[in-house]
């Protein structure tokens, strides 16, 4: 059975571009594009939830 990939949602208008999610993602799923974090490599996501937990701006949600 195919493993279901977590879905990462970033609310652009909430993101203030602090880099925390990008820096502390253990599998380098996210990157900065301009002042906003975006999902670069969704397949690498291991649903550790660290980006959602640490986003100070309520901008990221991860659905397992």
């Amino acid at each position: 059975m195919e493993k279901k990939q977590p879905e990462i949602k970033i609310i652009e208008k909430y993101c203030k571009g602090c880099h925390i999610c990008v820096e502390f993602c253990p599998t380098q799923v996210l990157e900065m594009r301009g002042f906003t974090a975006v999902v670069k490599n969704p397949d690498a996501c291991i649903a550790c939830m660290q980006c959602e937990l640490r986003c100070p701006d309520f901008a990221i949600s991860v659905t397992k």
């Binding site: 208008k13 203030k16 880099h19 925390i20 640490r54 986003c55 100070p56 701006d57 309520f58």
Partner: peptide, 22 residues
């Protein structure tokens, strides 16, 4: 748990207060 229309909050980029509020 957040009042409608109140986000984004006023805290600066990288301020940890949002993490604490969560």
């Amino acid at each position: 748990y957040i009042r409608p229309g109140k986000l984004p909050h006023i805290w600066c980029p990288g301020c940890g207060h949002g993490i604490v509020m969560k």
